Lab assay of single mutants.
Amino acid sequence: MDCGICYAYQLDGTIPDQVCDNSQCGQPFHQICLYEWLRGLLTSRQSFNIIFGECPYCSKPITLKMS
Rank of each mutant, 00 (worst) to 15 (best):
R39M: 08
G53A: 03
L41Q: 15
D12V: 04
P28K: 13
L11N: 03
Y35R: 10
T43M: 02
Y35V: 09
L11T: 03
C6S: 03
R39E: 07
Y9Q: 09
Q31M: 05
D2L: 05
F29E: 03
W37A: 11
C33G: 00
P28A: 08
T43Y: 12
E36Q: 08
S23E: 14
R45H: 06
I50M: 13
D2Y: 10
H30M: 01
I32V: 08
L41D: 13
P56N: 02
I32S: 14
Q31A: 10
P28I: 05
F29T: 02
S23V: 12
A8L: 09
D17E: 07
I50S: 14
S67F: 09
L11F: 15
C25L: 00
C20G: 01
Y57Q: 11
I50T: 10
G40A: 04
C58L: 04
Y35A: 06
L34V: 08
V19E: 05
I15D: 05
L42A: 12
L42S: 14
V19T: 15
S47W: 04
L41S: 10
C3F: 03
V19H: 15
D17H: 10
Y57S: 14
D17L: 08
P28S: 08
Q31H: 06
C33F: 01
C25M: 00
L41T: 07
Y9G: 09
Q18Y: 05
L38G: 05
I62V: 06
C55Y: 00
P61M: 03
S23M: 13
L38Q: 08
C20R: 00
T63S: 05
Y7F: 14
Q24G: 09
R39V: 04
F48V: 14
Q24C: 08
P28D: 01
G26T: 09
L34C: 04
S44T: 15
N22D: 04
H30W: 00
Q24P: 14
T43W: 07
L64C: 12
G13V: 04
C33M: 01
L11K: 10
Q10R: 13
L34W: 02
D12M: 08
E36G: 08
T63G: 13
P61G: 06
R39S: 13
V19W: 09
L64T: 14
S44V: 10
F29R: 00
H30L: 07
W37C: 08
Y7A: 12
D17P: 02
Q27V: 14
C3V: 02
G4S: 04
R39A: 09
T14N: 09
E36L: 06
L34M: 03
L42D: 15
I5R: 02
S23I: 15
I62C: 09
T14H: 11
N22F: 05
I32T: 15
Q24T: 12
C6T: 00
L11M: 14
D2T: 07
D12R: 13
Q31D: 06
L11S: 07
C3N: 05
S47F: 15
Q18E: 13
G53Q: 02
L41E: 13
K65A: 09
I50F: 05
Y57C: 13
G13W: 01
